[in-house]
Design a protein around this nucleic acid. Structure first.
Lengths: 239, 239
DNA sequence: TCATTTTAAATTGTCGACAATAATACTTAA
DNA sequence: TTAAGTATTATTGTCGACAATTTAAAATGA
C-alpha cells in the first residue's frame, strides 16, 4: 500500500517505515481511535526497540494522530464531531489561502496538467466505480495539486504534511461519502477556471465555499440525527 | 525568562526543559540561523544523553525551528525573506479564520477582558517604552487572546503551538519594529469592536488586513532596498 | 595537478538496561 | 464494608554502547 503523499520523503530509516505502518493502522482504524498505546507492546509487535518506536511516535504526534502526556503515555487521537468540524474550519482557512496563492504562483504547465486531470475524471465520472474513485483518490489529488500549486512551503507542510493524515483518518472512520460527488466535480472545475484566470480572490472564495459546503453537509446530517433521536425519545416516553 | 506561552504545558521532563532552553537559544539567535546542530556537542553542553536531546530536537522540529534529514542531521531553520513572507501569508489565513471564530465563540467575559487590556495599552501607548512594550509583548498578547478566543483546538495548536515560535524568531533576528505602532493599535481596536459586535465576517477581514499590512510593509522595505542596491551598482559602474 | 578510489573519522540510528514516575493491588484501620 | 494508606507492578524517561551511514581525509593512478 502506498501512501501517495507527495510531501513525505522516502522512508529510509526503520523508524520511518514503522511510522508509516502505524500511521496506516491508525488511519484505517486497526488501532482504534482513542485507545492507549503501549510502547513495549507495539515495539514487540514491530520487532523493534522502544527507542525507534518512540521516534516513530514522535512523527505520529507531529501529524496529530496521537497525543502524548508526560510520564503517562500516548493515545490515539479521539475522533469526534467537534474535531471533524474544527478540521474543516482549519482547512477552509488554509486551503482557501493556498488556492489564492496557486492562482498567483502556478505555472501555465501546472495549470494545464490539472485541467487535463479533471478531463480524465470527467470521462470516468459517470461510471459507478468512477464516482467512487473520484470521491476518494481524485478528490484528494485535486486538493493536493492546488496546495502544491501555492508554491508556499509553509502551507504545503501544514496541510499535506500534517492535516491531511487526519483528514484521511476521519474519512476512513466516519466514512461519509456524501451525495456531493457530481456537485463537487463542478466546483473543482470552477476553481481551476479561476486559477487559470489568475483570479486569486475568486479562487480562494470558491475553495472556501467548496470546503464549507462539505462541512455544512455534515452539520446538517448531525442535526438531523439529533432531531431523530429526540423524536424516538419522545415516542419512547409516550409508549 | 518566561516563554509566556499559554498553550505550552509545564515542562516536567528534562527533555522538556532542554527543549525550552534550546528553543530560546534559537529564537534569540544564540544558536545561529542555518547552522548545523551537533548532537554530541549539544548533549555535552546541556549535560544530558543524546536520547533525551533527540527528544528535545523532535519538539523543536514540531515547531519548525529545526529541520532534520535522515542519516545527516539537524539544521536550525534558515531565516529568509521568502520564509518570512510565507509565514505572513499563512498567518493571514489562520489568524483571519481564528478571528472569525472568536467573534462567534468568545464569551462576553473574554471580550470584556480583551477590551480592558486594550485600554491599559492605550494609556501606556504614548510613553516611549510603552510603545516598545506594545509592539513586543502587547502585540503578541493581543493576537494570542484572539486565537485562544476562537475556541478551536486545531487552530490554537497550529498557530500558538507551532507558528508563533517562528514568528518570534523572525522578530528577534530581523528585528523589524515598523513605524506601524499607533496604526496597529487602532487596527486592534477595530478588530475587538467587530468581535464584540459578533460580526465574524468583518472581524476576519480586519485581521487579515492587519496582518497583510505588516507583510506589505516588509515587501515595500525590501523592494526599496533592492532599488537602492541597483542605484549604488549604477553609481559604481559610472565611477 | 587533478580525478577517482580507499580508508579513516565522525555522526546519526538503533539497541538493551536502569531510574523515575504513575497505575494497580493489597493491607490495615475505622 | 468502606476508606485511606502502603506496597507492588507496570510504564515511561533517561542513559551509555554498538551498528550503520555519511563525511572527511588520504592514497593511488592518470
Amino acid at each position: 500500500m502506498k501512501t501517495n503523499n507527495p510531501t513525505q520523503r522516502a522512508a529510509v530509516t526503520t523508524a520511518d517505515k514503522v511510522f508509516e505502518q502505524i500511521q496506516h493502522a491508525i488511519v484505517e482504524g486497526e488501532i482504534p481511535s482513542g485507545s492507549k498505546i503501549s510502547e513495549p507492546e507495539l515495539a514487540k509487535h514491530y520487532q523493534i526497540s522502544r527507542s525507534t518506536l518512540r521516534e516513530a511516535l514522535n512523527r505520529l504526534e507531529k501529524c496529530h494522530l496521537i497525543e502524548r502526556k508526560a510520564n503517562v503515555g500516548s493515545r490515539v487521537v479521539k475522533c469526534s464531531i467537534e474535531g471533524l468540524l474544527e478540521l474543516y474550519v482549519t482547512r477552509e482557512a488554509l486551503e482557501g489561502m493556498a488556492c489564492r496563492q496557486a492562482a498567483k504562483n502556478m505555472s501555465d504547465e501546472e495549470i494545464a496538467h490539472m485541467q487535463a486531470m479533471l478531463k480524465v475524471h470527467a470521462q470516468t465520472q459517470d461510471l459507478k466505480d468512477g464516482i467512487a474513485y473520484y470521491q476518494e483518490e481524485g478528490n484528494l489529488d485535486f486538493h493536493y495539486k492546488v496546495i502544491l500549486g501555492s508554491h508556499n512551503k509553509q502551507l504545503i507542510e501544514l496541510i499535506c504534511g500534517q492535516l491531511y493524515h487526519l483528514v484521511r483518518m476521519y474519512r476512513c472512520q466516519f466514512g461519509m461519502y456524501s451525495p456531493r460527488a457530481s456537485r463537487a466535480f463542478d466546483e473543482h472545475s470552477h476553481i481551476i477556471q479561476a486559477i487559470a484566470d489568475r483570479d486569486g480572490e475568486l479562487a480562494e472564495m470558491l475553495m472556501r465555499r467548496h470546503i464549507a459546503a462539505s462541512r455544512k453537509n455534515i452539520e446538517n446530517k448531525i442535526s438531523k440525527e439529533i432531531i431523530q433521536k429526540e423524536q424516538t425519545k419522545i415516542q419512547l416516553i409516550k409508549s
